[in-house]
């Protein structure tokens, strides 16, 4: 379903990231439109996570630009980028280890609650209403993904699949416009992966989201993504719809060559 170019959500131009002599991402040109689900695939070490890190401001790119809704966000701090509406999950789950499931989500609401140190400490009325609103919102989110009954458990004590889910909920709690998922199906069994695909589509529709995801499980990417980019050694070797990617000889070679 091609849409007008005016709804271009996230794009990068000539994005390049070097670590010393290694070029982890090379001249990456991304275009994602509103409400799309776009995949990013490639063999291990291809530079996928690095691309995410540059987009979300964790690294400053060596060259190139990141534009969000047409606005240049290159070099902004990660928290500023999150505030603009880009949320992400991590490949190696990074939950707050001393916190309950609910608190993990509440942390992500901090932006919307923050009334400064004193307002918060003194529990001033303005703070109170925002805090209780955030609690309601967080519980609602947890409810939707079936984690509400675990709200007071420690986040890191959940089984792996639920931890990944919690990471997604946490990202959703920042009220993003676009969600970046780094290998959301890693460590899941096929059954869970299929559920995850449905879940991703569901949140896209329900929260009016755009989704950009990295995935190794071919089943997941092919099933859920409308378009995808393929990286190999930092270079974009292909992009297009799943069917054309599957047939692309370069892609087949990259995967066979490594795995």
């Amino acid at each position: 379903m091609p849409e007008q170019t005016s709804s271009l959500m996230l794009n990068t131009s000539h994005l390049t990231m070097r670590f010393g002599g290694l070029t982890a991402v090379n001249d990456f040109n991304l275009e994602i439109r509103k409400n799309e689900i776009v995949g990013l695939i490639g063999p291990n070490g291809a530079g996928k996570t690095t691309a995410f890190n540059v987009i979300t401001g964790m690294y400053r790119p060596s060259e190139g630009k990141v534009l969000f809704g047409g606005r240049d966000i290159t070099g902004m701090k990660p928290h500023g980028i999150t505030a603009l509406g880009i949320a992400r999950t991590f490949q190696n789950i990074r939950l707050f280890k001393e916190m309950s499931v609910l608190e993990n989500v509440l942390v992500a609401c901090h932006m919307s609650i923050d009334t400064g140190l004193f307002g918060a400490t003194l529990h001033l009325p303005g703070y109170r209403s925002r805090e209780s609103e955030a609690r309601r919102f967080s519980m609602e989110l947890l409810e939707q993904v079936g984690l509400a009954h675990l709200a007071y458990e420690k986040g890191t004590s959940l089984p792996y699949g639920q931890q990944r889910r919690l990471e997604i909920v946490r990202a959703l709690a920042t009220k993003p416009k676009i969600l970046l998922l780094d290998e959301p199906a890693a460590g899941m069994n096929p059954q869970e992966s299929i559920e995850l695909m449905d879940f991703i589509r569901k949140i896209r529709d329900e929260f009016d989201l755009t989704i950009f995801l990295i995935e190794h499980h071919m089943q997941v990417v092919m099933g859920v993504c409308e378009r995808m980019y393929v990286l190999d050694y930092g270079v974009t070797i292909a992009h297009g719809d799943p069917a054309s990617i599957q047939k692309n000889p370069k892609v087949i070679e990259a995967y066979l060559g490594v795995d």
């Binding site: 964790m58 990660p78 928290h79 939950l95 805090e131 920042t174």
Partner: peptide
């Protein structure tokens, strides 16, 4: 303080700086 949102933000920074930053803190 520790019961408030600001206290949570501090604990988030303690537990995982990068994740906290990614959550908009």
């Amino acid at each position: 303080l520790m019961r408030s949102s600001y206290g949570r933000a501090m604990k988030a920074v303690r537990d995982d700086e990068l994740a906290a930053e990614a959550m908009g803190i």
